[in-house]
Every structure is written in C-alpha cells, then in structure tokens.
Design a protein around this nucleic acid. Structure first.
Length: 299
DNA sequence: ATCTAGTTTCCGCTCGCCGA
DNA sequence: TCGGCGAGCGGAAACTAGAT
C-alpha cells in the first residue's frame, strides 16, 4: 500500500497510538470511537507492513519498527504543525520567501526605489525579483509559480483577480535649454515640434495622441520611435525632440528634462495589480499585494 | 452506484479481585 | 491455590452518512 494525501491523518493516529500504547486512549485523545481507531491501526499495519502494536496480555506493546518510527514521526508532525501555523500567521519579518513582480520597465522604474526600501524594511530575509513584461504571456506567468503579481495596464484577464494600483497621466518633456523656451505648450507649438513616440509594440509612429489630434484636424511629426518609456527622457535630453511620457517618469528625470502640461485633455491610464486566484488567500501574498498597493498609491 | 470512514453492537481475551 | 466473575481492552460485523 502506498502513502496517499489522506494518510496524513493516519500518521496523526499512529502518533497517538505510539504515545498511549492503547487503542482506546488514542481514540479518546483524537475524539473518535475505539473501533474507528482500531480500523485506523489496521490501515497503518497494512501501510507499514508491520503490526506496529502487538498484544502482550492486556497491553499493547510497540514493535521494533514502531519504535524506529516514533521519533521521526513526532518531528515530522511538528514540522507539519509549524507549516500550517506559519501559513495562517504570516510574519514578513521572519520569512525567507522569494517574491516576484512582473511589470513594464516604466512601472519598475517608478515603483522600485520606494518598493525596495519598504520591502527590505518589512521583510529583511525575503527576496524580490522584478520580471520583464511580455503582454502575451502575462496569464501564463501568473499561472506558473514564477510570478506572484503583475502590474499592468488595460489587460483583459477575466480569470485573474485584480485591484487598482495607481492612475497615471501624461506630460510633455523637452530638454533643458530647448530653443523653444519655457513657455507653456499651445496646440500650435505642440504640433510644430518634432516628436519622439513610445511604441511598446515597437516600430510604431502613430499613437493615441495622433488620433486625438486628428479629431480636431491637427497632426504632428513623429520622427523617432522607441519601444520603452525609459529611453525617452535620455533621448529627449540629447535632442530637440519632445515626447509624451507618464508624469511619474518625468518626475524621476526632472534634472534631465523640463515637463509641461499637455495643450489638450491628458489621456490617463490605470496600472492594476493582477494575480492568480489560487494566491487569493495566501497570507504572504496578501501582505505583498498590500505592500505594492500602498507604494503605488503613495508614488 | 460505489467507496470511505465513521458509529453501534457484540464477542472473545486477559487480568485483577474475591470467596471457597 | 484455584475457580468464578466482572471490568477493560481490541477486533469483527453490520449499518450509516457523506463524497465522488
């Protein structure tokens, strides 16, 4: 007979039987009837292929095999007990667990400093991995054990659980000392500039802004396209190009570029926290979600 | 319908006590 | 010392309830 998951209960019974060396006393300890405990002993005898307890007059005495099992079994059950208690009472300061976060490089850039500080402070023995964002494999990553949480925008994953992270708006950036000067952007001056466009899919020269401009009969000239928001501030700082970037990212690079309000209604987007439903009640994961949401709101 | 694990009931065995 | 008796024990059988 092989060990099954349900046999963990049998091991608890065996522990009680070896402790009391009596079926009746073990049954009372575990709150079952004596015949039920007797039946469990029979299953244990079959499982271990050993009588475990043999009659000696009116008493039951453990076999050599039972004596060998007794101490390791006690340690094993103590470990299981610890495992169950730790899963209920998660203490971040005591965990050495590794957590992983999937997000775009922009989100990593915006949150990483504050998140790292809070993470190290609350969970000094744990580890945190930032993982690269691949739009087509987000759900696959969440399903696997390698991703605890994804911070993403506009992803339609009905199977995933989610909570709001933060709302982001766009701003226009230009280099320090730009020949245009520091006057606010009018629609005319905005359209007159040469633009850098962030195209996450790669290679695009038309974005949501161009559609907004087209609705009012306007257009702009996009001369440079990059796949990542992180590249934009550096490239803008080294050229006369202007670019639309998320406000928080512009704040991070305010020593490098100047930022201005958009001359039209700024498109906003939400960054949400997504996770697999099986992690919903994991106390460690609840702590991680709470920490990331807290940092996101404060960022 | 079948399986699993529980309960109740009953039985047999052993031991301790007590009287002859 | 020995036999009878009751108490306490584990095990078997029959039955039940819940899950699959």
């Amino acid at each position: 007979m092989d060990l099954k998951k349900s046999d963990i209960g049998l091991l608890v019974a065996l522990d009680a039987l070896l402790e009391h060396e009596s079926v009746t006393a073990a049954a009372q300890t575990l709150g079952v009837s004596q015949p039920a405990m007797s039946a469990q002993l029979a299953r244990l005898r079959s499982l271990f292929n050993d009588p475990l307890l043999t009659s000696s007059g009116r008493k039951l005495v453990p076999t050599i095999r039972a004596l060998e099992i007794k101490q390791p079994l006690r340690l094993l059950l103590a470990d299981l007990d610890l495992l169950v208690r730790e899963s209920v009472e998660f203490d971040p300061s005591k965990t050495d667990r590794t957590f992983s976060l999937l997000a775009t490089d922009y989100v990593h850039a915006v949150l990483s400093t504050a998140l790292l500080q809070a993470f190290v402070q609350e969970a000094p023995n744990a580890r945190l991995a930032f993982r690269a964002f691949e739009p087509l494999t987000v759900w696959q990553n969440l399903e696997q054990d390698d991703t605890d949480l994804a911070l993403v925008t506009g992803m339609n994953l009905p199977e995933a659980r989610q909570r709001p992270g933060f709302l982001e708006e766009f701003t226009v950036i230009q280099r320090k000392g730009h020949p245009r000067g520091m006057s606010p952007f009018s629609l005319d001056t905005f359209c007159a500039q040469e633009h850098l466009l962030v195209s996450p899919e790669g290679g695009g020269f038309v974005g949501a802004t161009d559609k907004t401009l087209a609705e009012t009969g306007r257009s702009r000239r996009v001369v440079f396209s990059v796949p990542s928001f992180l590249l934009a501030p550096t490239l803008v700082a080294g050229s006369d190009l202007v670019a639309l970037v998320p406000l928080r990212l512009a704040e991070l690079h305010k020593g490098l570029v100047d930022q201005f309000d958009l001359p039209f209604q700024s498109p906003s987007f939400a960054v949400d926290l997504l996770w697999h439903p099986r992690r919903q009640n994991d106390p460690a994961h609840i702590w991680l979600r709470s920490l990331v949401a807290r940092i996101a709101v404060a960022s």
